[in-house]
Amino acid sequence: MNLPAMRAIYLFEMARTRRTLLQSIVSPVISTSLYFVVFGAAIGSRIDEIDGVSYGAFIVPGLIMLSVLTQSVANASFGIFFPRFTGTIYELLSAPLSYLEIAASYVGAAATKSIILGLIILATAALFVPLRIEHPLWMLLFLLLTALSFSLLGFIIGIWADNFEKLQLVPMLVITPLTFLGGSFYSISMLPPIWQTVSLFNPVVYLVSGFRWSFHGVADVSVAVSLAMTLAFLAIFLAIVSWIFRTGYRLRS
């Protein structure tokens, strides 16, 4: 393992976060705070408790998941797309690094940023609503697995995209709608039966449900299924990254 090289990439990516603190951390925190103000305080005060949890507290896991999913994808995709766009990718490809080390460095940095962001949003939420975390270790595990899985997805998008429009395409047209419709702001048990069935095809439902269970002990689907689905995402994205590396797709002509 070329650990010094992995460390160099990791620190380089983390330094980029520090340089773009407004965009990387402050902006998601402000938008999440706005969600709390609008849905938690203004609208939430008129909504009944869900499964014995106040609406403001109920949406916290979903809001964290929303940010972690979108930021994992955004950070990892931009991290590998930018060197491809500027041409500095030549340095990565000519360095004594394996594909695994390249992916682990970028995905590791993106996941770290998302986890930090998730924890900051959690701390922010605690300012607005009383919070309890029933299963803190499970909460951290779900956070870690989700951040890793979707950073891998971001890495794949960053390699696939050949322009900025494509880079934004999947996060805007796929990730965000799936997250909003994945029970971030509601329990899918509140939907008519047909839409409950449809929702089960939305992979984000399982992530949000498992994560919410770690907070409130209530879930839309079984925790074991949520965990299995999260691990399945991880496996699928790892397989795709492995294929990319085996074929040199979009990296080595």
């Binding site: 380089f12 340089r19 004594p96």
Partner: peptide
Amino acid sequence: PQELTTDAFESVWATVSFSRGLFG
């Protein structure tokens, strides 16, 4: 390389340190 491909927003010191680290 032939093209002037650089990380425009990095400092000179940071980018040469990065390159050295990249090669282990």
